[in-house]
Every structure is written in C-alpha cells, then in structure tokens.
C-alpha cells in the first residue's frame, strides 16, 4: 500500500527549466479559485474514488491527488482506474462502479440543473414530470449516489434558475427529503459542499439548510444573494476561498489543464 499513499513525483520534461521564474505568476483567475474550492472537497477523504463531473471539478480532483490527497483513486472517464500519468491501476466498469457507489468508498461531485436550500438536486427535467417543458438527463445515478456516498455539487453559473426554492424533480436527495424518508435514507447520506462560480456552500446549520461557507475573492455577499432563489444562511464574517499556492497554480496551468478547459466553464 506504500505506493498508493506516496505523493506523486512532479512530471519531468527532461530539460532543465529555463530561468524565467523572476516575473511573478499572474494572479489566480476565478476559474482557479473554483478549482481550489473543488479540490478541497476531497481533502482528508482517504482512499476513496473521486468522481468529478465537469471540467473544473476534474481539474480540482487531479490537483488534490497530486498535492494533499495522494491516496485518492481516479478513473480515465471510462472503465479504468488510472495513476497521475494515466497508467492503469485497476478496472472499474459500470457494474463495479455501482458497487463502489453502494460500498461508500467514493465522493462524487455532480452537476445540478436545480438545487434547493436543503440540497435536493434535479438533473431530470424542468416543469411537470408527466410532460416536461424541458427534458434533461434523467435521474441517472443521483438517487443511488446521494443515499450511499458523499455527494458534492458543482454549479458553473450561479443563478436564481439553478438555486431555487423547490426543485421540479428530486434526483439527488436533500437533507429534508432524507430525514422524511427515514433511517434507510439518512444512514449514509451526506452533502459535503456545493461549489459555484461565486463561492462555496455547505449545510452546517441546525436544520441542514444551505449556508454560505466562503466567497471567491472579488465576489460580494450581495451578489450571491441576488443570484440565489432562496435565503441561504450568511454568517457575520464570511471568509474568502483560500489562495492557491504558487506550486498549485503551476500544476493547474502547466500540467493538469494547459488547454484551459477550466476557463471555458468559468470565463474570467
């Protein structure tokens, strides 16, 4: 097990680095704060599968594994578990992936077409389910995910259309729905965080309703409230999402996402 817990060495390009380090790195972009906020979701998770959906969460999960969470498992997006350099280390076809889900050794970060104050999430359809105004993905694995392993969410464009008072179709189960459904639902249910382009949210309130946990630098509380269709709990002092280290910025920009897929999801 030693290999799996040892930090991965930085990739070598073979050539010595040119001496161009004197100019300071460009300051972090909004997308890069989002990457950091997503990466932090997997801190101290142990040896579990990180299942990121979306570009920013994918960069975040890979950053976490290359830095503070080297024991995480990641897939190639298909059926293989792969190391940081893409070398296969295990087989995870859908049928086994579903066992990973129900076995609980996984933390997924899903998207959300709608999410409410208790973390109920909808990716199925908009409007009346019988005859939807807009058919979306369907519930997919959201019901099994939310009842079996930690589920966080990523919303690249925070708006009142996404953060709603009540979702049209509960795909991912929220805290109030789980409590109402009883111990079978609450036993392994946990929503660690919701990351958006504006900030980070959690459910660390007495009734498990959404709370603003941190703002990305440059964002105000007023901006968040105006873009949210319900009133989240706002602490007296709201911290900012932490700064990336210089090493993290280099990893994001040079190694993990040199093509800038993160900027397409969260424009600067």
């Amino acid at each position: 097990m030693t290999d799996a817990t040892r930090p991965s060495p930085a990739p070598s390009t073979g050539a010595p680095l040119p001496d161009t380090r004197t100019p300071p790195l460009l300051p972090p972009t909004r997308a890069e704060y989002c990457v950091i906020a997503c990466a932090e979701a997997w801190r101290d998770n142990g040896e579990v599968l990180a299942s990121p959906m979306g570009a920013v969460p994918s960069v975040g999960a890979r950053l976490a594994r290359r830095t503070f969470a080297p024991e995480l498992l990641l897939t190639d997006g298909e059926a293989m578990l792969v190391g940081p350099d893409g070398t296969p280390e295990g087989w995870l076809p859908y049928r086994r992936h579903l066992t990973m889900v129900t076995g609980g050794r996984r933390h997924v970060m899903m998207g959300a077409s709608q999410i409410d104050r208790f973390g109920n999430q909808n990716i199925s359809c908009i409007g009346d389910w019988e005859r939807p105004a807009r058919q979306l993905l369907g519930v997919r694995g959201a019901p099994v995910n939310t009842l079996n392993n930690p589920v966080s969410y990523w919303v690249p464009k925070h708006s009142t259309r996404v953060f709603v008072e009540k979702v049209d179709m509960i795909s991912g189960v929220g805290y109030d729905s789980a409590a109402e459904a009883g111990p079978t639902a609450t036993r392994y249910h946990r929503i660690p965080r919701v990351v958006s382009n504006l900030g980070v949210f959690d459910f660390a309130t007495p009734d498990h309703s959404m709370r603003l946990a941190s703002l990305h630098p440059g964002v105000t509380v007023e901006e968040v409230l105006a873009a949210t269709g319900f009133g989240p709990t706002v602490p007296d002092e709201v911290p900012y999402t932490r700064e990336p280290t210089a090493a993290e910025l280099e990893l994001i920009r040079e190694v993990i996402d040199p093509q800038g897929l993160r900027d397409r999801e969260v424009p600067g």
Binding site: Y94, T102, S124
Partner: peptide
C-alpha cells in the same frame, strides 16, 4: 435510477420478483 435498473436486470436473470435496493428512497423516483 441506474443502480435500480441494474438490480431489476439481476432480479429477472435470477428469476426473482424483486431485489431490495437503497437507491430511490427519498427521491422523486
């Protein structure tokens, strides 16, 4: 749900009327 679907296939392949699954409870499924 994706897992409910899989267990529905398992139930049929094993000639069982159903399989118990946690997934679905608490959701609009």
């Amino acid at each position: 749900d994706e897992a409910m679907f899989m267990w529905g296939l398992h139930a049929a392949a094993n000639r069982l009327p159903f399989m118990p699954v946690r997934a679905g409870i608490g959701s609009d499924v």
